[in-house]
Each structure stands twice: as C-alpha cells, then as structure tokens.
C-alpha cells in the first residue's frame, strides 16, 4: 500500500480559462485536431468538441484573453465565456497509473502522449485531461468535485 498522494505529486494550478464556441472557420487560432492541444500566443487551446475549445492561459489573464477573442470573433456567431472559476486544474506528476484506476481511457504512455487532451470520467467525476509533458498530466475538474477527486486519487494510491 502506498501513502496518500503527496503535495509534489498533485499541484493546484492557477489558470485563466476561457470557453470558446464558434464555427471552426472563423477561429483566430489554429484549430486543434480532436482530442489534442495547440498553442495560441503562448496559451493552450484544448479541443473539447468540433465547435468548442478551452483556451488556457496564465493566472489573471482571463480578462485580456476574453477581450482578444471577443474582438477577433466580432460579427460572427460565437460564445466566449470566462470559465476560470468553473473548473480547478491540478498538475499531476507520474500519475497515469493512478488515473487508470478510475478512467477507461487508453493512458498507456505509448499511446497517450504529450499534447493530447480528452474529456472523460475519473470515478464519478467528469474530467478534462491534458498531458503537458512526459511526466505531467493536467486534470481539470469542477471545484465541487475537487475534494472527491483528491480523495479518490488518494484511495487509488493507497491500493495501487
């Protein structure tokens, strides 16, 4: 039995998050392929759906990202919504095995590689996973599920 998930293994990330929905043809950024991430002006653009993306930038930049996107999409039907508080992000180190305790995605490092993202379930919580680099998985979860997420991860770690 392993110990609880450690502070080094699980770091809360302060981020700006902007939800974008629009016709892919009018985007100011390169459209990521399904379940992958591209970058735009130093921000991550996560594919959430064929007309839905999550733009992730550094903390407190939500105002400027929102303005830039609103300006770029003006005149086109679109949705640009600040969702920075709607999800909490955790950066998990070396934890794909822990996530595989409650997530049916193929998280084998030979298939799940940096630059991929996916929406799925971890136990009973909806999550967005984003593999930042070989070691780090960023997990977005609703704040109301944050305690559950940490506890469920800890239970997996104790049993692994």
């Amino acid at each position: 039995m392993g110990p609880d998930v450690t502070a080094e293994q699980l770091v809360a990330a302060e981020l700006a998050q902007i939800g974008v929905r629009a016709d892919p043809a009018v985007l100011p950024f390169e459209q990521p392929q399904p379940n992958t991430v591209t970058t735009w002006k130093g921000r991550d653009v996560l594919w959430l759906g064929p007309d839905e993306w999550l733009v992730v930038g550094e903390a407190d930049s939500e105002g400027s990202i929102e303005r830039e996107l609103q300006d770029a999409l003006a005149g086109q039907p679109h949705s640009v919504v600040d969702v920075s508080a709607n999800r909490i992000a955790f950066d998990l180190a070396d934890s794909l095995d822990l996530l595989a305790s409650g997530c049916g995605l193929d998280l084998d490092p030979s298939r799940w590689v940096p630059g991929m993202c996916a929406q799925s379930l971890f136990g009973g919580a909806q999550v967005i996973l984003h593999q930042l680099d070989e070691r780090t998985t960023r997990v977005f979860v609703r704040p109301s599920f944050a305690d559950y997420f940490i506890d469920r991860l800890g239970a997996a770690n104790r049993l692994i």
């Binding site: 409650g102 009973g124 599920f145 559950y148 469920r152 997996a156 049993l159």
Partner: peptide
C-alpha cells in the same frame, strides 16, 4: 467496488 465505496461510493459535491 474497489476504491468506490464509503464516502467515495458516489461523489460528494461541496460549494465554495
């Protein structure tokens, strides 16, 4: 059930 029992049987959601 594995880890999904007790308080983890179903997620408990809490407000801010």
């Amino acid at each position: 059930a594995g880890p999904d029992r007790g308080d983890l049987l179903d997620p408990i959601r809490r407000t801010r």
